[in-house]
Each structure stands twice: as structure tokens, then as C-alpha cells.
């Protein structure tokens, strides 16, 4: 028994150490966002400084590059939020629709088309990047949110996941019953199927939202005007700008950029983690 407690003690020590290592970058980030540039250049300290407000003012001053046009980090939040919400809604709705189309109906070419979806899951997104850029250049949709939002109507992995969900949970008799009651096909989908699929949609939505919120490469390539930058691109943009001349402000900007995710995670951690577990076991 004693030996077991000893092992347990060692293991807890190890886990705690690992947890601390995991959190140290966050601690450095938060502490340094309260310290002045001179203090940071002199060396690291675990004692927070007194320059938080000054760092914030400096950051906002330099981010507000054009009077009234570019309101710094808050605008970045707004842009990211608009994009991520639109992507999540479109992807959730149309993936459910497509998955249901494949599940409930028999039509020519169904198999081929479904295999096409499976194949596209394997294709790395970089393959079409340059063509995507040229397409949007030709369509005059560069520097708009169209290339960031509209393509989410076609998300192969989500369709695949939802079809699997339908296969394992839906009974075709339910659809038949609804038809006998005289419901139209479109109404059946919206009134019966969509509510049934909600758990699957919710699960995918979390990951779609996080993915869209964190997306970097595509917006980096297609968005030019700073006032339209989503948060991740905005952060990269800061690196070469005036904010980066003051380390305290830079650390503060980084802290602020990750804060919403950390806060959301505090409320959703159980749900997110169980979704990951569930998703992987089904594979």
C-alpha cells in the first residue's frame, strides 16, 4: 500500500510538472503583458509589472492606423466572429442537407459522387491554393469574405461524418411515416431530420468554428485590407508593424487574441473533450 502511495506521489509530481510546463508559456505571456518594454528587455520576472494600461493604450494607438477605419484588435474579433459564425452555420446546414440527400434517396451516380467526397477528404488544401487565388482574382472576390465563407457549403469531412451518423441512428421508417402524413420532402428535412441530427451538427460545429476562427493561410492570401483581417492574420500583421516595437504591447495583443478561446474552453471543455474521444473511437 505504501509503495503504491509512493508511486502515486511521484506520478502526481510528474503530472503537475507537465501541467506547469504546459501552462508556462501562458504565464509568461500574461505576466509580460503587464510589464514595460524596458523591463522585458532587461530580463524575465514572475512578478507582474504595472504597465498593463500603458501597454493597452500603446497597442490601440498603433493598431488604430487610420482614423475611424481600423479599430485594432476589437475589429479583429468582430471579423473573425462574422467569418466563423457564417462558416459554421453554412457548413452545418448544407452538410446535413447533403448527408441526408445521400442517405434517403436512390439516384444515378450516387456511389461515384460519394466516393468523390471521400477522395476530396484526402486532398491537402494547398493543392488548389494558387488556383483558388486566381479564381477569386478573376471573380473579383479577392479582399472580400466570399472566398472564406462560401466554400464552407462544401465540407467533405462534415458530410461524411453526418452520413455515418444518419446510418447509425436514423430509421427509414420515420421518413416513411412522415410521408404518409403528407409532409413534403423539404419539410421533412427541416422539421424532422434536422432536429434529429442536432447532436452531430453540434459536435461538428465546435470544430468547424474553432477551425474557422484559427484559419490563417487562406485569409492571409485572399484578404488585403487591414480592416478586414481576421484575428490570426491581424496577429501576423502586427509582427512587422509599430506595435512590435514595444514588447509589452505585443504580449498583451497575443494574450487578448487567445483570451476568447480560453474563456470558451472553460465552459465547454468537457463537451469538447468527449467529442474528440467519441469521434476517434468511431473511426
Amino acid at each position: 500500500m505504501n509503495k503504491r502511495n509512493f508511486i502515486r506521489g511521484i506520478l502526481y509530481a510528474f503530472l503537475t510538472l507537465l501541467a506547469i510546463t504546459c501552462l508556462i508559456p501562458f504565464a509568461m505571456m500574461i505576466i509580460n503583458s503587464t510589464r514595460s518594454n524596458t523591463e522585458i528587455v532587461r530580463g524575465f520576472s514572475i512578478i507582474p509589472g504595472k504597465s498593463l494600461i500603458e501597454n493597452y493604450k500603446n497597442m490601440m494607438y498603433h493598431m488604430d492606423v487610420s482614423d475611424g477605419v481600423f479599430k485594432g484588435i476589437w475589429l479583429g474579433y468582430k471579423n473573425s466572429f462574422i467569418i466563423a459564425v457564417s462558416v459554421t452555420v453554412l457548413s452545418g446546414y448544407f452538410s446535413a442537407l447533403t448527408a441526408y440527400g445521400f442517405f434517403a434517396y436512390e439516384f444515378k451516380g450516387k456511389k461515384v459522387l460519394f466516393i468523390l467526397i471521400l477522395l476530396m477528404m484526402m486532398v491537402p488544401s494547398q493543392l488548389g491554393l494558387l488556383g483558388f487565388f486566381e479564381l477569386n482574382k478573376a471573380l473579383k472576390t479577392l479582399d472580400t469574405y466570399i472566398p472564406l465563407i462560401i466554400p464552407s457549403i462544401a465540407t467533405p469531412f462534415t458530410v461524411f461524418f453526418m452520413r455515418q451518423y444518419l446510418v447509425s441512428t436514423m430509421h427509414p421508417a420515420l421518413i416513411e411515416a412522415a410521408r404518409i402524413d403528407g409532409a413534403g420532402e423539404i419539410a421533412i428535412f427541416h422539421k424532422i431530420i434536422l432536429p434529429i441530427m442536432m447532436p452531430a451538427i453540434a459536435t461538428m460545429s465546435i470544430f468547424t468554428f474553432i477551425g474557422a476562427w484559427n484559419n490563417y493561410l487562406v485569409p492571409l492570401v485572399v484578404i488585403f485590407s487591414p480592416e478586414k483581417y481576421p484575428l490570426p492574420v491581424l496577429m501576423g500583421y502586427l509582427k512587422g508593424g509599430k506595435v512590435a516595437e514595444n514588447l509589452g504591447s505585443m504580449y498583451l495583443a497575443i494574450s487578448m487574441s487567445v483570451a476568447p478561446i480560453i474563456i470558451a474552453f472553460m465552459f465547454l471543455s468537457k463537451y469538447i473533450i468527449s467529442s474528440i474521444s467519441a469521434g476517434s473511437v468511431k473511426e
Partner: peptide, 10 residues
């Protein structure tokens, strides 16, 4: 798991 959710550019 927390680091995994961070914006990669940040």
C-alpha cells in the same frame, strides 16, 4: 489539451 485550441499565429 488547452494549447491545441490556440490560434496558431498567436
Amino acid at each position: 489539451y488547452l494549447p491545441n485550441l490556440m490560434t496558431v499565429s498567436s
